[in-house]
Design a protein around this nucleic acid. Structure first.
Length: 155
DNA sequence: GCCAACGTTGGC
DNA sequence: GCCAACGTTGGC
């Protein structure tokens, strides 16, 4: 396998939670709805086997709740073509898709969820994209060390 | 290409 | 619900 990378992906648990991923067939599902170019471009960099921190946002306890891995590299997000979908993009066509998604498989939940408050206080995570002021990217790169620290936090 | 207005994100 | 920070849009 080529060089393996680490990522963090945000989801609002009310729309799609880590538990939803676990309950999916083969614990695998597609990650649709990304509508930000930088986040999309990061997804395009993903390779099968890359590891992902699954983050819950806009909820009572925001934080990393589970580990996942990339099962399929970027391919067109079907929701961009569907006028009935909230993520519909009239500028996208089947011939010229704009937005991509990847498939993820749940590896395991973190026993002690690594809450945002905890992450902020944890040594070695000072430079995490997630913790940068004003950072809103829903798909972000994570360093190997950051990954290891957070996995250790989660037991 | 500038930039004001507007929309979205996401913690609190 | 508030609001800071950021991204996008569109007139010029």
């Amino acid at each position: 396998m080529p060089y393996q990378k680490y990522w963090l992906m945000k989801s609002e648990p009310t729309s799609f939670s880590f538990e939803d991923l676990v309950r999916s067939k083969k614990s695998t599902n597609h990650w649709d709805g990304v509508r930000n170019y930088q986040a999309r471009n990061y997804m395009r960099e993903m390779r099968v086997g890359d590891k992902v921190l699954f983050y819950h946002s806009s909820c009572d306890e925001p934080g990393v709740v589970g580990l996942a891995e990339v099962m399929r590299t970027a391919y067109p997000d079907h929701t961009q073509f569907d006028p009935a979908d909230v993520h519909y993009d009239p500028k996208a066509t089947r011939d010229r898709p704009i937005w991509d998604m990847v498939d993820l498989r749940a590896i395991k939940p973190l026993r002690g969820p690594a809450g945002l408050d905890v992450l902020r206080k944890t040594k070695g995570l000072e430079k995490m994209v997630l913790l940068r002021r004003g950072s809103r990217l829903s798909v972000q790169p994570v360093s190997r060390k950051e990954w290891e620290i957070i996995v250790r936090l989660g037991g």
